[in-house]
Design a binder for these strands. Structure first.
Lengths: 114, 114
DNA sequence: TGTCATATTCACATATTTGCGAATAGCGCT
DNA sequence: AGCGCTATTCGCAAATATGTGAATATGACA
């Protein structure tokens, strides 16, 4: 524990910077925090969840019990091979619970989106 | 198409029987159909979804592009190794969409659920 | 510019899921 | 009992996800 000291001003707010970059880059407005982001991809959900928890990929990886590259892989946009086991591990590390819903697609009639 | 004829009274309602067995066995009352069953395991969700669609494991397997044993494995209660890819395949076959939600476990305060 | 931390990508070994057939059990019906 | 259909379980090959470290960006700050 003695090694990992951190200069308060320099890197402490690195996550804050990343947070700002992420949401300013790909989003018009920052999420209202209660919004679940139902239309987002799994990768986007994971990134948002991690950033809002104020963690780096390394920190999350350590909590989950894996490496940063694995986390990065899960957060990469074109990746589709997620397992429920891994999602549960991540959710647990972030004090969350994964809820799975099957919603009818109802091709034919379309209700108003939101 | 000529081969698979079916005697109307005998096996046509096999699924109905299974449906009744399933919900009378493990459930007090049949679901109100709008209920998503948020507290159920993935396996239970899949079984319920298939039965409410009026399909056998074989039929669903054919639609999904796999074998009945694979479906059975996914529906078995103690199985935990689901992949999102497979869940999406099943959902698509049943005209549904998989929605993934991370909900805070909120140890401490508990907001009203809905 | 240089340094530091983060994130991304690559490659490979390992672990896990899937695909599949065959055998077994359960239930309804004649 | 026997038949027919469903569901379950087993084993193994093939496909896929994960674990891992190293190398390579990217951005922030001095």
């Amino acid at each position: 524990m003695a090694k990992r000291k951190m200069r308060a001003t320099a890197t402490m707010d690195a996550v804050t910077t990343l947070y700002r970059r992420y949401y300013e880059g790909r989003r018009e407005r920052v999420w209202t925090l209660d919004e679940a982001g139902a239309t987002d991809s799994v990768a986007q959900k994971l990134t948002g969840l991690r950033l809002r928890a104020g963690m780096t990929q390394r920190q999350l990886a350590h909590l989950v019990g894996t490496t940063p590259s694995a986390i990065c892989r899960l957060e990469s946009a074109d990746y589709e091979g997620h397992s429920l086991a891994m999602l549960n591990r991540i959710a647990a590390a972030l004090d969350q619970r994964v809820e799975l819903h099957f919603v009818p697609v109802s091709r034919g009639k379309r209700l108003k989106p939101s």
